[in-house]
């Protein structure tokens, strides 16, 4: 009976837990059946008794399934209480994937803010593995503090394989001797042919908006500026309604959108989704 119920998670074994930063862990999980996914897709991950949350895949198709999870709420908090050998429930993959055709033969500018690097990682792998299909690949990755930087070792590996990496933190400490400030402030260092480039952006919503504007201003056409959004979700398959954005649902119409699509939605319906300028509760 379970086979035809999309809401029934399959059991997955946590094989390994690696601490990436003070509140981010990397979980490698093993499923009974083989599961395939594309860069940008997500799974609904559940801990029974706590609930489900949408988590994007952080591993490439050649790797085992991995989730990079930050402890922010009820469910992710519960996941952080689990160890290797414990089981979780997963169902998916859901959502669309990062479009690759917009980047073929062009320079690629990847901009990540905080945990935003997680869903972009399989994309980076794609560019490394099929380097000949793309021109130069730039990665700008920003974090709040040096303690929040994740995948710093991998960045070194990526650099060796031709990705031009810039790491930056907003609030540096004594140990930090690289770049500081917001990611968008370092776009000048990116010597891409912007008119003829594609960009992939992920991070907190404010940062996504700023970065999309910045690369657009430098000349990347709106349809080649790609981002992935996150939202409150209960089902992952376009039924529960929580992740609405105008007429779209982030889970089925996204989570990957181009700047062009988002602009069009905002023009037609107002923002209706995104951080508000002033807090209001009650009337």
């Amino acid at each position: 009976m379970n086979a035809n119920n999309v809401y029934t998670p399959s059991e997955a074994l946590i094989e390994e837990v690696i601490t990436l930063s003070r509140n981010v862990n990397l979980y490698t999980v093993k499923t009974k059946e083989e599961i395939k996914w594309l860069p940008g897709q997500f799974f609904m991950v559940s801990v029974f008794g706590f609930g489900e949350a949408p988590i994007s895949v952080t591993s490439s198709a050649r790797e085992p399934l991995k989730f990079c999870i930050k402890k922010v709420g009820h469910v992710t908090g519960a996941i952080h209480g689990l160890r290797a050998g414990d089981t979780i429930g997963i169902r998916g993959p859901y959502g669309n994937a990062f479009p690759l055709d917009v980047a073929r033969g062009r320079d690629v500018v990847i901009i990540a803010g905080g945990l935003g690097i997680a869903p972009l990682r399989p994309l980076i792998h794609e560019f490394m593995e099929n380097g000949k299909d793309y021109a130069r690949v730039f990665l700008l990755s920003g974090s709040k503090t040096p303690a929040d930087v994740i995948y710093s070792e991998e960045c070194a590996l990526w650099e060796k394989r031709g990705i031009r990496v810039t790491l930056t933190v907003d609030c540096p400490d004594d140990s930090w001797d690289v770049c500081t400030g917001l990611v968008t402030a370092h776009l000048d260092k990116v010597e891409a042919d912007f008119q003829n480039a594609a960009s992939y952006i992920c991070g907190p919503e404010v940062m996504i908006e700023a970065a999309m504007k910045a690369v657009s201003a430098r000349g990347i056409p709106e349809e080649r500026i790609i981002t992935t959004l996150e939202a409150h979700m209960k089902c992952g398959v376009g039924k529960c309604g929580h992740c609405y954005m105008g007429p779209k649902y982030i889970c089925t119409d996204g989570p990957v959108f181009s700047y062009k699509e988002l602009r069009r939605l905002a023009e037609r319906f107002g923002k209706g989704h995104g951080p508000q300028d002033d807090p209001m509760w009650g009337y």
């Binding site: 992710t76 939202a231 508000q276 209001m280 509760w281 009337y283």
Partner: peptide
Amino acid sequence: GFTGMAGGALPAEKRIL
């Protein structure tokens, strides 16, 4: 709370939205 994010952010906090 319908669109509330795990970290507590409320994208549609304003009732008009």
